[in-house]
Design a protein around this nucleic acid. Sequence first.
DNA 1: AACAAACGAGAGCACTGCTCTTGGCAATGG
DNA 2: CCATTGCCAAGAGCAGTGCTCTCGTTTGTT
Lengths: 254, 254
Amino acid sequence: MLSFVAIALEIPHDVDMPQSETTATQGVRARARAELVAEITRSARTQLAESGAAALSLRAVARDLGMASSAIYRYFPSRDALLTALIIESYNALGEACERAHDEADPTDLLGRWRSIAHAARSWATTNPHEYALIYGSPVPGYAAPDDTIDPATRIPVLLLRLLEDVAASGVAVPEIGTPVSTSLSAQVDSMREQIGGEIDDALLLTGVGAWTLLFGLLNFELFGQFVNTFDDAAEMFAFQVDAAADRLGLVAP
Amino acid sequence: MLSFVAIALEIPHDVDMPQSETTATQGVRARARAELVAEITRSARTQLAESGAAALSLRAVARDLGMASSAIYRYFPSRDALLTALIIESYNALGEACERAHDEADPTDLLGRWRSIAHAARSWATTNPHEYALIYGSPVPGYAAPDDTIDPATRIPVLLLRLLEDVAASGVAVPEIGTPVSTSLSAQVDSMREQIGGEIDDALLLTGVGAWTLLFGLLNFELFGQFVNTFDDAAEMFAFQVDAAADRLGLVAP
DNA sequence: AACAAACGAGAGCACTGCTCTTGGCAATGG
DNA sequence: CCATTGCCAAGAGCAGTGCTCTCGTTTGTT
């Protein structure tokens, strides 16, 4: 059967589980429930890491946990809900890995911070390819990402925006872009700047979006097999393109 | 039942179907077989376009064609084989769309040729999102792309390389890259240049890879929902980044 | 005409997500 | 303190899937 004792100790990434607000006061009932939810996601995460998202089976996690498949539905209303939990976990794991790498870098070394983020992202993606595919690959069939996922998904953009703000504040000269910004695009950038409330000018922001897009374009190409037979050691190509993007942002070693 | 007559007329893209080498001489048997294969892929393609790859069901196409599900296995050994045929078709459709757009542009207008390719790719991707996801999204579960797919997949890289060769031959000054090329990466580029046999120097080739990666990174972000709530009109962002990449390649309007 | 290969249909297996019902246990209210 | 209410696990069952095997039938070749 289930062993409730050893479970609460090993919840890997701190994903906001539905463990209400009370942990001990609200009785053992709610706690056992939270632990079981964690146990289900743990088993599902293992299955995802081994075989990928499409092979994730509710019945298999039920077997793994030694319970009836129908009992899973007491904790997750559908397979998509379980997948959503895994998506949120993956976004948070990737975001946390990048944030930690970023925060370990010298704050005054803007180039080092950018490199840390980029290589942390690649490191996480290559060691967790199925989780990466889950969040940056094609969305699962007819599955629309619920609102719960957009917040964890913004961790990396937010992190990059923090970096861009420091770039803007540092006063380094961002290379000119030889491309005019249409009024429509400028309006979009304005509304975006309003949301984040920083002081990043159009050129830097748009170049940053390009760097962000290139970063994950590289990871997609590497992990989804577009580089095979051509750049089999994608690490070198990745490092180069990351540095090239940094150059466009005006990032230089201190 | 099946209507063999009207089928052979509307095979959309010229995918190399297993129609042996003889079309009329080898009897009606082989022809009926080829037509049925085409009919199966046609139905599967419709189902893919409507509901996505994961929802593609062999039994559903069998029902659509009015035949037993087991009969499908006379033509495709597995569901993955059917998916592979659709992947090849999609690669060819996208490649052909880009090639046609490219060939319609003024050959001396290098910027126009790049823009044509990029916007043709986006146009195809946005009108065929499920097909796009099939080839540029996460690979289906434990499914390894067979060798038949790598050839159609190279159509776009080949097309871009053709363009880069003309850029190199045109003698326009490609902007310097402020990033050193490691010896290991240089070796990879050398072996790649050996395969394609052109005269594109390291900087141009690597910048081209960056442009190629950025192009599909943008499409992935747009189609897989990473731009929602931020750049809802991804067309503007796409056009800007495409032009910015062109600028890095030294492409200018004639 | 005889034979062999290809073929379509059906039954069946193991699997999936999901629903409904049944019976037991825990937490709370009178 | 007992009874009621709600939570929970389990089982059966439904509709669907990919895939296999067998069994007649059709088709093409010798």
